[in-house]
């Protein structure tokens, strides 16, 4: 309480809130962070970090083409995101090249295509905001899209929460008891593409993968319960977003980078001090003092 009434900290929090663009940025980034954080626990447990990286980079040409054609950019991003995964699967099956190599070459190819397209289509596309995000410059139509997609992903993940957990844990058992594993696989990929689309607004294409894996990894170090993991993941993602935006406002730093750095610091903190799985095992330290 005393801290809150402390003038400078108080204004540290409230001053930015007087700006309309800051209120919008804080709200939207928190929402996006929550969605990515929710998905993050599944991706880290499934071991799909590289897949997340691939999908998030592959949406680049989709965003550019959609802008050029005047379509919602989320539509273009979604098509290219899912398309990249399909292409990865196809090349893997039809050639002897190893999976991680295929993933790497497909997503860099898509990403390069996006960059080339931007240089060719001389429109008002702001390459910088695609690559590094622009949470402070979100337009009203972007807000609507983000709200819609976020809601969709949250609903899908909530309905199939337990099935997706089973799919990540033991797909063979899922199949044996008649659960549609094929559907769950593509559901998770769809959610991944959609989350990448909303995430790139906050932190940009290059860093959006951090939103998809870091909160989950942090939570994984802190709990042995799946529901808690999801909760911690979402919370740490939201907190990182708020910290990142405030810090970038006061110290005039790149916002996307600040958000991801905040996530990284929270992860490092968990890595060092997590009660059971941290390097210094706080639980044991405290037990020693009793």
């Amino acid at each position: 309480m005393e801290l809150c009434s402390f003038l400078t900290l108080d204004s540290f929090i409230t001053d930015p809130l007087t700006h309309d663009f800051m209120r919008k940025a804080l709200l939207m980034s928190s929402l996006v962070a929550a969605v990515c954080g929710f998905l993050s626990s599944y991706l880290t447990l499934k071991g799909w970090a590289l897949m997340g990286d691939a999908v998030s980079h592959s949406v680049m040409p989709g965003v550019v083409v959609a802008y050029a054609l005047g379509l919602p950019f989320s539509l273009g991003a979604f098509i290219f995101g899912v398309g990249s995964v399909a292409l990865i699967g196809f090349i893997k099956q039809k050639s002897r090249v190893k999976e991680d190599t295929v993933i790497g070459l497909v997503f860099t190819g898509f990403f390069a295509l996006g960059i080339v397209l931007v240089s060719k289509i001389k429109s008002n596309i702001d390459l910088h905001s695609i690559l590094f995000g622009s949470p402070l410059g979100i337009s009203l139509s972007d807000v609507k899209q983000t709200l819609f997609i976020s809601l969709l992903v949250v609903i899908l993940l909530s309905i199939f929460r337990k099935d997706l957990m089973l799919y990540c844990f033991d797909p063979r058992h899922a199949k044996t008891v008649g659960i549609n594993v094929f559907f769950l696989h593509y559901l998770l990929l769809t959610c991944l593409s959609l989350a990448a689309v909303v995430g790139l607004q906050s932190v940009g294409i290059i860093l959006v993968v951090a939103m998809l894996i870091t909160p989950g990894a942090t939570a994984y170090l802190l709990t042995d319960k799946f529901d808690n993991m999801t909760l911690i993941s979402v919370l740490s993602a939201i907190i990182s977003s708020l910290i990142g935006i405030y810090v970038s406002f006061w110290f005039d730093l790149e916002t996307g980078g600040s958000i991801v750095l905040a996530q990284t610091f929270i992860f490092l903190f968990a890595f060092l001090f997590a009660p059971r799985y941290g390097i210094f095992k706080l639980k044991k330290l405290f037990a020693g003092y009793k």
């Binding site: 063979r172 042995d224 799946f226």
Partner: peptide, 22 residues
């Protein structure tokens, strides 16, 4: 060896997965 023993899940939840299909 076929399962991820580090998966954050309890005995109860694993056994409950036997009931998911129904």
């Amino acid at each position: 060896e076929g399962i991820d023993s580090q998966f954050p899940i309890s005995v109860w939840d694993v056994v409950m997965m036997g009931r998911y299909g129904s």
